[in-house]
């Protein structure tokens, strides 16, 4: 994870729930590359075809509420979303995103300073999001160490893999 993340912004409203990110009818799809074709079908119909790797989502309150489906952040990761910034997140979505290595940043007031297509600059340890078009910015409490480490490892899979490896007796097989 880089300390500074920049990207083109897609804006979303409040209470975007996981049904609007990935509808219930796609839940039997496991392949993230299939899933990504349907991401935000309800909330942002153009996103799946026009999004580029590194794009940043900026949402209002309670982003990702609803079910625990990891399909939502998985599809976003498959598209290559650089970060999700929101006024606030629903808790399972927040965990899932971080566990998959997607920077999820809670920054009060962030939605109000962005329009679709702006460019955002996120400074992770400084705790600042800036709209590079307008110059406006909001600050946020940087993520706790534990979560930064998770993101740095590239997500939970890699972190646990290292942990299990460290536990294994030297030279032993798992």
């Amino acid at each position: 994870m880089q300390d500074v993340i920049e990207g083109r912004v897609w804006t979303l409203g409040a209470d975007v729930d996981t049904d609007q990110i990935i509808s219930g009818k796609y839940l039997t799809i496991i392949d993230p590359n299939e899933l990504k074709k349907h991401v935000f079908e309800i909330a942002l119909p153009d996103f799946a075809k026009d999004a580029r790797a590194g794009d940043i989502l900026v949402a209002d309150e309670n982003f990702g509420c609803g079910s625990s489906r990891e399909h939502a952040p998985q599809a976003m990761r498959a598209i290559g979303v650089g970060a999700v910034v929101a006024d606030s997140f629903a808790r399972i979505f927040f965990r899932n995103a971080i566990n998959l290595g997607i920077p999820a940043i809670e920054a009060r007031g962030v939605r109000a300073i962005f329009s679709n297509g702006d460019t955002a600059r996120i400074e992770m340890t400084a705790g600042k999001v800036t709209n590079l078009r307008s110059g406006e910015s909001v600050s946020f409490p940087p993520l706790p160490r534990h979560l930064l480490e998770l993101l740095e490892a590239g997500g939970l899979v890699e972190k646990v893999r290292r942990e299990l490896e460290a536990q294994a007796p030297a030279g032993g097989t798992r």
């Binding site: 609803g66 079910s67 625990s68 489906r69 965990r95 998959l100 939970l156 646990v160 942990e163």
Partner: peptide
């Protein structure tokens, strides 16, 4: 791995939903 796991808190427990990747870590550790 379901958001309504909260229901089981009715037993006087902390019961909560997590995603499948996180569940993999729980199963392992």
């Amino acid at each position: 791995t379901d958001s309504h796991t909260n229901m089981l808190g009715a037993m006087g427990a902390v019961a909560t939903g997590i995603g499948p990747t996180e569940m993999a870590a729980v199963l392992a550790l």
